[in-house]
Design a protein around this nucleic acid. Structure first.
Length: 110
RNA sequence: GGAGUUGGCCAGACAGUCGCCGCUAAUACCCCUUAAAAGGUGUUGGGGGAGGAAAGUCCGGGCUCCAUAGGGCAGAGUGCCAGGUAACGCCUGGGCGGCGUGAGCCGACGGAAAGUGCAGCAGAGAGUAGACCGCCUAAGCCCCUGAAAUAAACCGCUGGGGCCGGUAAGGGUGAAAGGGUGCGGUAAGAGCGCACCGCGCGCCUGGUAACAGUGCGUGGCAUGGUAAACCCCACUCGGAGCAAGACCAAAUAGGGAUCCAAUGGCGUGGCCCGCGCUGGAUCCGGGUAGGUUGCUUGAGCGCUGUGGUAACGCAGCGCCUAGAGGAAUGGCUGUCCACGACAGAACCCGGCUUAUCGGCCGACUCCCCCC
């Protein structure tokens, strides 16, 4: 997954790795390390918000596996901007995924 | 009214809506069966869902396995006394010392006359004390002076100087200089003597005890500091941890090689004994690591009564209050206000410590004003 991501979507304080799947619905994984987010309260809050965001948008997302990685500093972002970030990321993900499905052989340069 | 001390409690609220994790009831289907129960999946309804610190992991216990945790050594911890407790390094009460006008607060608070060690600088001297300045020159010796007496002299009164010394009152050094104040005493001084204070020891009295005393007697009087230095004394402590452990399914099969060997090897990791099990170790080749349980009814919480100064105990009645498993307890919208801190359960309890916006209640102290 980490080495064979089809797509990478970046947002403020986080990054999402995406792979296409044939499951028929999106699937979410979360990586929030203690190193990057020190307090348990902040780790839990981040995971809840990401889950909620995916839940609210699950019908619009393509059939993909998503892994969201938290980066240092997410604990300082408030809920509202975090939601906006995630919303923007999913929109980009949708667009890119559809483009990739249209092209049968996705090229993996760089 | 102001300032403060102390004990306890709360931890945004409400509504709507969309979700998550257990529980429970009904129901549908699956599985199974003679039939049911149990089990699984879904739908609908009901109900529950982080903390006072859930944290740090610093102590103590339960639970589980190793022996039923046994003996010795080593090691670690605790350290005024009594009580509480399952236990504690915790709590309560008391003692002693310190701080505060006070309510109160703080204290690793046994032993330094068993032993060993350590102490920079300054200073004469730092633990069998010590003469740098100062004070003294009585006794002993030397020199000068030379009263009185004598015929004269010797000796030598007096005074002065020196040597040998005396002295811990004063100065100075230091964190600390070997009880304090006063009087006597003396050449000057000194517990040298005495009085008072202090201290040590013995007894008596009070107190369970620590300890206390205008108590009685006795000793001139230190036993300097450091034991979060070794140490001594008293008391306590076996080890590992829920990834403990248990169960189910499968499997650990079977095989080959080398080495060691029944005063052995493993369990048992500080070591020895003891105890239990038994051939063991390494390599080659092959195989597995899924689920269930432990998992929340407990030294539990609330109320009342009762014993106790209190911590807490006892009795009765009532209540059931998260249980996940990469990990639920949330998102959004609206209204209100004192505009919300620190922060997220992971086997469970009792403490300690640390973090913390603010609010409420009780008790008490000091100061000012009024009656």
């Amino acid at each position: 997954m980490f080495e064979q991501a089809d797509l990478k979507v970046h947002g403020k304080g986080m990054m999402a790795l995406v792979r296409l799947s044939t499951r028929g619905h999106p699937r979410l994984g979360l990586v929030v390390s203690k190193k990057n987010v020190k307090r348990a309260v902040d780790r839990n809050r981040f995971k809840r918000l990401v889950r909620e965001s995916v839940r609210l948008r699950q019908d619009h997302l393509p059939s993909v596996d998503i892994v969201v990685l938290a980066r240092r500093g997410v604990q300082d972002i408030d809920n509202e901007t975090l939601h906006r970030q995630l919303h923007g990321m999913w929109k980009r993900l949708q667009r890119d995924a559809q483009a990739m499905i249209a092209v049968p052989t996705p090229k993996r340069d760089t």
